[in-house]
Design a protein around this nucleic acid. Sequence first.
DNA 1: AAACATGCTGAACGTCCGTATTGTAAATGG
DNA 2: CCATTTACAATACGGACGTTCAGCATGTTT
Lengths: 231, 231
Amino acid sequence: MSVSKPSTDAQRPRRTQAERSETMRQRILDATLECLQKDGYGGTTVSRIIEVAGVSRGAPLHHFPSKSALIAASAEQLIRRVYIQMGKAVAKLQGSEDRLHDLIYSAWKNVFNRPEHIALHELLVASQRDQELAEILQKVWTAGYFTLGNAADHYLEPIGDQANVRDMMILTQWLLRGMAEDLHIVANRKLFDRYLKLWCEMLAVHLRARAGVTEPPPRPPQWDSSPSNDS
Amino acid sequence: MSVSKPSTDAQRPRRTQAERSETMRQRILDATLECLQKDGYGGTTVSRIIEVAGVSRGAPLHHFPSKSALIAASAEQLIRRVYIQMGKAVAKLQGSEDRLHDLIYSAWKNVFNRPEHIALHELLVASQRDQELAEILQKVWTAGYFTLGNAADHYLEPIGDQANVRDMMILTQWLLRGMAEDLHIVANRKLFDRYLKLWCEMLAVHLRARAGVTEPPPRPPQWDSSPSNDS
DNA sequence: AAACATGCTGAACGTCCGTATTGTAAATGG
DNA sequence: CCATTTACAATACGGACGTTCAGCATGTTT
């Protein structure tokens, strides 16, 4: 219900305006993402957001010109978060014995089978009727393509000559996305593990670990800690 | 904008109450599905539905106790329609030269790459927060599993011994569903054909056409023309 | 310290939502 | 042929939506 309230503000009664403003802005963004995840796109109303954030009704529109701008800013932040997390996860696979399996599982566990992905997916679906959102969500394509694609290209190599590592990672992402949509339909969670394993076996026909890779994959360009500069 | 207006009602000024009622009911259901497809779940309001159907505001709630009941009835009807269509499509593949390829393409063209699937997908996403819808949408799992699974089992056989036809069809459905969500993001439509082809090649490692299959697959049980008996 | 600027509150506004109610034409049944 | 029932139209209602705005603290500047 609450999103990171400032510890005890008796401790620091004085903060600069910029500080106040930034924490408030962040609090609203976090509350929006929490709403998207728990209540869906349709349930993400201003009333609900301010309830979760614990702020007044006017606060969100003081920082964002409209609700759709707030959603857009939340989307940008979420995409960055999700794929940075994934980038970090796939950077720790040098010591793995079965790199293909661990890469796929890492993508599943760190992206598609996460609460954050629910919010991201809500936005993706909403973007079918919202041009502005669609342009932002295109970054998911790019982000996924490079994060998973680069990592796979770094750790794995094709076995045959017509196989292509990056293409198979694109198929992987579509598959995992489709799987994630059945999480609430299919009760038996172990089923998903079974099919994930089957998918790894199908990939293993065409991909194998590169020999002697001890370095983590190169980091994507600007994705370190650019705060949140948007609209 | 309009959904199957009665041809020329000057021709038949008298119809039984049951007839009037049934056509009206169907008109409302069709309008609801059209709304779901064009305006999404959130945009499917009573106002929009009656505008599309060209009926009064009271009409929908005369036939359905509430809006959610209307949505539920529409969902049931849609699921039946979509997978009957798929069943018919995959029943014509005996003459195909590349049955695996044609089966996958048929699933894509007749289900996932169709306007109706957009509506179905909206309902699937909404069912994450709606228990009643979720129970209805479970039928999509069952329907997909049997329709595509049975057909594949009929036309194809595993090559290795650990391969399983039905499991691979489940992966196929997840993949196609995930692909369909990027249709509005990725401008180049030919890309999807490329990846569909790649997927077929990956499947071809494990599946091949059964020899001497000239019959169409057996029809699923009750799926012929049961009108629309629900809630 | 006084004057100003900024960050946010909280009430209010108009619009649209889903539903309830009342009225009217058409079909049914004696 | 008329009373009754059914099918739908039309309007009204309370509530929730996104947005606006005057007011009040809290920093900032002079």
